[in-house]
Amino acid sequence: MTRNILLAGVGGQGILTIAAIIDHAAMQQGLYIKQAEVHGMSQRGGAVQSHLRISDEEIFSDLIPLGQADLILSLEPMEALRYLPWLSQDGAVVTATQPFINIPNYPDKEQLLSEISKHCKDVHFVNADKLAQEAGSPKAVNVVMAGAAAQYLGLSPEQLLESIRSLFSLKGQHIAELNEKAFKLGQTS
């Protein structure tokens, strides 16, 4: 079992929290992990991505080769498209639909969504903002998205939930429960 996952978003949106959840779960399941992330300049509102690879065999490259990503998981629609060159032919795109607009020439949302559908057969659009609100915090968008992508990760959903509990319980019982709910809402989205 090998999964190449490309996480995408804008600096500050919280893709590294998703990565931490997947990493934790993969570790508990005894898998090899490599997860390359972006620090520095781009974190100032620029495009950011993380290459996350999990496998039951030794992983060499920290970077996913072009055309080899099983999943693009994006917190925003335009960023999902940016990494299309990495997506494998039968790969999936799971993306939040709410645009993150911090540039003057941000394209039309509907056009973005139809472009995604045009390039990829297995697409899952998630109204993550709404579900995060429902879970109790707009900040839970990233955990909603982790839930929405759960079936593509090759990890057990119970383990992912367990990892969320374990990672968020440090911030208090309430926060842990809120994120658990966010994950579940994402799962059924």
Partner: peptide, 9 residues
């Protein structure tokens, strides 16, 4: 590789 679509700014 598939190119990044032109719509991406």
């Amino acid at each position: 590789p598939v190119a990044t679509p032109a719509i991406v700014a």
